[in-house]
Design a protein around this nucleic acid. Sequence first.
DNA 1: AAGTATGGATAGTGGGACTCTCCACTATCT
DNA 2: AGATAGTGGAGAGTCCCACTATCCATACTT
Lengths: 199, 199
Amino acid sequence: MSVPTIKFYVREGLLPAGELTSPNQASYGEAHVQRLRLVRALLDVGGLSVASIREVIVAVDDPERSVHKLLGTVAGGLVPSYGREPGDGIEEARKQVAALITSRGWRANPGSPAAEALAVALAALEEAGHGAFTEVLGAYADAAEAVARADLGYVAHNVAREQLVESVVVGTVVGDAIFSALRRLAQTDASDRMFGEAT
Amino acid sequence: MSVPTIKFYVREGLLPAGELTSPNQASYGEAHVQRLRLVRALLDVGGLSVASIREVIVAVDDPERSVHKLLGTVAGGLVPSYGREPGDGIEEARKQVAALITSRGWRANPGSPAAEALAVALAALEEAGHGAFTEVLGAYADAAEAVARADLGYVAHNVAREQLVESVVVGTVVGDAIFSALRRLAQTDASDRMFGEAT
DNA sequence: AAGTATGGATAGTGGGACTCTCCACTATCT
DNA sequence: AGATAGTGGAGAGTCCCACTATCCATACTT
């Protein structure tokens, strides 16, 4: 990490300023390094924007927030935020999402960023002429539930709030990347079994 | 879609040029519109760069490529390509990935982009101090297998090559977004059940 | 004939993530 | 003590990327 980059992060509010020991000397501790690693993980692997990371950081540092609310903020802020794309089939997709949430018995708000993101994605599928993809939505939801259970199980290990929150953030963002990569590998395998020729 | 944007896509090789009926008139058909929708889906929902999309398009349009190879190209080109980030714990992570592939019996190349992406993500986790997250890797892999099976099952519906290929591309990219959103929703639900207070 | 649109190509725009440059001052080397 | 290197702070500049604007000669439209 170059010094100017760190300065930039401090200015952008991703990193707390060091403790000034004199007008132009500041000292940094392990906490700064840890925070820096968090920022890099979100940036490089999670692909978040600096602005999104700032939101997440602010939420993480706010001790007022209950753990559950914080998870909500994080999950919301971490949605990749697909291009504007208003689209017109979006209404239908929203209903579909609401129906899914109901049928699954999920305690989730149909207006949450995640739900909206799902609606946008489904609408895009429909528009691209692959509406039939929704056939597999059930299988996806099953898998998502399994993954979420695993996530929460992991999170429950960390009792200290600071650690807990961070594990949620990291797990959510890096977890996406990990799952995505695993899916590719599993697809490769499945494709090989289905279409693979000799050799 | 504005005209200049379409011109831009044509120049970038994302879209075939229209058929010239005179020096300055060209006609476009349904295929162009379809391709345009594909590009928009990859761009908006998939978050791919124009360069990645071009690679995918080229692969899709190459009739020489076997379906399986094409899937490989697509899956490879569609990897989000996390920031450079060489890191140093990467070697250990690569071994971990290779071990996972072996233990799962996956027919996948440990050097493939997906495997590399997984290694990078795991290394980032380790560096961020959340190496214990790998505890849940098994659960993730199970879920990934289930999703991949569903994907291939869907893909198998489409017999026409053109359609098949497109469904793979769309399914892979938009599927990521859909799963990600579903995971957020399921996490919200799980978190509510675990930490939710009254009200 | 007037007005508008088109394909093609080059240059410019706006946003995002840095990176450079300046400044006055401090730490450290010798 | 003097030379050299580094620091925090802040504005400007750079680079990349997905567009967008402008030009031009020509071709549809009315």
